[in-house]
């Protein structure tokens, strides 16, 4: 029961605190690409890989009282802050889930911006293509972001650091 939810609770527990829905979406996507056993299905949307399944599952965690979501007003937009509740921690203790440790990967991603994670996840979405084609595709589908060649190179380095083969 709720095995996929339990994996997400483990993720939130290792994050301690997470700010931003976009960041959440991209982090789980990148962790999937690092072979962590998340099952949420992703599709490409205007802002890169996006999982409706993940959005719904997170909503369920909130409704069950395992996760707290706070809406914060920023200049011109809202952002969301996620923290695991005591109930969530208790559930995880009961569950005894066998999940590989994600600390190191989460820490690396936490040091980067959402914009950068969006770039990395979009590059990973096209992973079957040669590097040059990936870059061309990213610049086409995300032309409004105006990613520079330095950012692209940093993203390739990051993908390598995360242990993802390309």
């Amino acid at each position: 029961m709720l095995q996929e939810h339990a994996k997400l609770i483990t993720f939130f527990s290792e994050c301690k605190e997470l700010v931003g829905r976009k960041r959440l979406q991209k982090m789980i996507y990148i962790l999937k690409k690092c072979q962590f056993p998340f099952s949420e299905r992703y599709q490409f949307h205007f802002y890169g890989p996006y999982s409706e399944e993940l959005t719904l599952r997170v909503q369920e965690l909130i409704n069950l009282g395992f996760l707290q979501e706070e809406k914060e007003k920023k200049s011109g937009y809202y952002q969301y802050r996620y923290t695991l509740t005591g109930e969530g921690e208790k559930f995880l203790d009961h569950y005894n889930l066998d999940m590989p440790n994600m600390d190191e990967h989460i820490e690396k991603m936490s040091e980067t911006s959402s914009r950068f994670l969006e770039l990395v996840s979009t590059m990973l979405f096209f992973e079957g293509m040669p590097k040059e084609e990936v870059e061309e595709k990213v610049l086409t589908v995300k032309k409004k972001q105006n990613y520079t060649s330095e950012e692209l190179q940093q993203a390739w380095n990051f993908i390598g650091d995360m242990g993802i083969q390309h």
């Binding site: 829905r21 976009k22 949307h45 802002y47 399944e53 959005t55 599952r57 809202y78």
Partner: peptide, 17 residues
């Protein structure tokens, strides 16, 4: 959530258009 369904989302935090 076992049957993902796209509720209308206003696109806050750049989720969806």
């Amino acid at each position: 959530s076992d049957l993902p369904y796209d509720f209308y989302r206003p696109g806050e935090d750049e989720e969806r258009l």
